[in-house]
Design a protein around this nucleic acid. Structure first.
Length: 457
RNA sequence: GGCGCGGUGGCAGAGUGGUCAUGCAGGGGACUGCAACUCCCCGUACAGCGGUUCGAUUCCGCUCCGUGCCUCCA
């Protein structure tokens, strides 16, 4: 069965046919580092991390590039407000982003290029666009001239006329056409900037991805991804820039063959917005929940569907992970290493990343199989999904609010007392001890092998 | 206004032209001193209206409702 994916460019599910099966290439637009990443950024990172994992499973070599946008007006504003150099802001939030994503089981992309390190490439591309008649200079700016690109709008499915009609922003006077967008803009001395043939300035937003994708992957490459909102204008503009720079304005596939877009996220049924005060940051969530629970929650809806983030979703995925880890704990003495990814799970992933179906398969797996076979299957499934990477025993002891050795001693003392009480049929006392432990956040479970305990989340 | 996406049982969420999703929550039972854990059992869900069909939740059309994008927001 071939890998299937929904290509935003053709608006249908297609068989994935790599340009070169020996080396598959994917690019996904990463965050602008001016603040903590919100959970929408995190969803994108998790989704494309999973795509990368699946591709790596299927092809011998995969290069996954995801950038860091470290020059942008919002960063300038943040730096000004904080009274620090731009780099201090970008370095800080890049590190936090990478750490937080690591907590979510997101493997680092093979290459994580930074915009500021690719100014040269951007300038070259802008020059190509000017030379080809696709861009022009005006008042210190360089603008991409949209009417020069006959196929502009292929991705978002809008004709140029429609956009003009829908334009709701004041059009800068130096634009030849209202739809024209900035490739380069002038900087003042107190703003970040670079010398260029067009004067001291900084790049527009879209050009960086065109330049970095081409440099690190070469053209064309297989897959380009990002959040659904980037489809227009960002990705549309990337296509325009990259194709026109190479004189292939009627060949959108000369840039990226497939386009993948992940859906949006709401919080408790509402759109995430600063004014509603429900702006959830990945950084905060990572402190409050195990990363794997969050990861699974992100994957509990299909990546293209909207996902409503709620306590209930978190709970549901916590329960599933607990069950999986419990099984692995039971099987801790069983000799088994990760085997093949179970066929139904692989099939689900290969069908446009049908992760909800994977969850169902995981449940089914636990019912139908056992022993070494189950353990090997779970470990393999965990590897490709990016979960079950912890020691099962450690999973049930939360290390964040870990107990001090004294506390552990006390817990064990109480449990010993309770065993004794039970032996003497003093159930009132036994129950009292259990209650006491519960107050401490410890839950007792009597098993055939004697009582065990775990900390309540 | 333009371009999209979606409406599935209390909730989350797949899928299919004609037997079953799955999970969470809830109910019942087994186990237990009692619990918890675990296990077993339990729900006539596919927005509405037409059409195609022997048969539609699944295909087509319309209606209603929700939602995203339309210049820098994943």
């Amino acid at each position: 069965m071939p890998l299937k994916l929904y290509n935003s460019l053709t608006r249908q599910k297609e068989d994935f046919v790599p340009i070169n099966p020996d080396h598959v290439k994917m690019y996904a637009c990463g965050p602008t580092v001016y603040n903590y990443a919100h959970i929408g950024n995190a969803r994108m990172a998790v989704v494309f991390d999973l795509w990368a994992r699946v591709l790596r499973h299927l092809y011998p070599k995969v290069t996954y590039v995801s950038n860091i946008t470290d020059v942008e007006d919002k960063i300038m504003i943040a730096a000004k407000e904080a009274g620090v150099p731009i780099s201090e802001i970008t370095e800080k939030y890049t590190k936090i982003y990478n750490d937080d994503m690591a907590s979510l089981g997101v493997l680092p992309p093979d290459i994580q290029p930074k915009a500021t390190e690719h100014i040269e490439e951007m300038i070259v591309q802008i020059q190509q666009l000017i030379k080809g008649g696709y861009a022009y200079e005006a008042e210190g700016h360089v603008l991409f001239h949209v009417p020069s690109d006959p196929s502009y709008g292929v991705l978002s499915g809008r004709s140029r006329d429609e956009q003009v009609a829908g334009a709701r922003v004041e059009v800068a006077p130096y634009k030849r056409d209202p739809a024209d967008f900035v490739l380069w803009k002038p900087s003042t001395d107190d703003q970040p900037g670079w010398d260029s043939p067009f004067g001291f300035g900084r790049p527009g937003w879209h050009i960086e991805c065109s330049a970095m994708a081409e440099k690190h992957l070469g053209l064309p490459f297989d897959i380009h991804g990002g959040g659904a909102d980037l489809k227009f204008p960002h990705h549309e503009n990337e296509i325009a820039q990259s194709c026109c720079a190479n004189g292939k304005e009627n060949e959108p596939e000369s840039f990226s063959k497939y386009w993948l877009h992940n859906g949006f996220l709401t919080v408790e049924g509402e759109k995430m917005s600063k004014s509603l005060g429900n702006f959830l940051l990945a950084h905060d969530l990572v402190q409050s929940y195990p990363g794997e629970v969050l990861r699974l929650a992100f994957l509990s809806a299909h990546y293209r569907q909207p996902l409503d983030w709620s306590e209930q979703v978190l709970h549901q995925n916590q329960v599933l992970l607990d069950k999986l880890y419990k099984k692995l704990e039971e099987l801790s003495d069983v000799e088994a290493s990760a085997g093949d990814v179970p066929q139904d799970i692989l099939d689900a992933l290969m069908d446009d990343l049908n992760t909800p179906l994977v969850m169902a398969s995981l449940n089914k797996l636990m019912k139908e199989k056992d022993g070494a076979e189950l353990k090997a299957a779970l470990l393999a499934a965990g590897n490709i999904m990016g979960i079950l990477q912890h020691d099962p025993a450690a999973w049930f002891v939360s290390d964040e609010d870990g107990l001090t050795p004294e506390q552990v001693q006390k817990v064990e003392l109480l449990i010993a007392e309770r065993i004794e009480a039970k032996d003497q049929k003093d159930f009132a006392k036994a129950d009292e001890i259990r209650k006491e432990l519960l107050v401490m956040g410890i839950e007792i479970k009597d098993t055939r092998e004697g009582p065990t305990w775990e900390q309540l989340g």
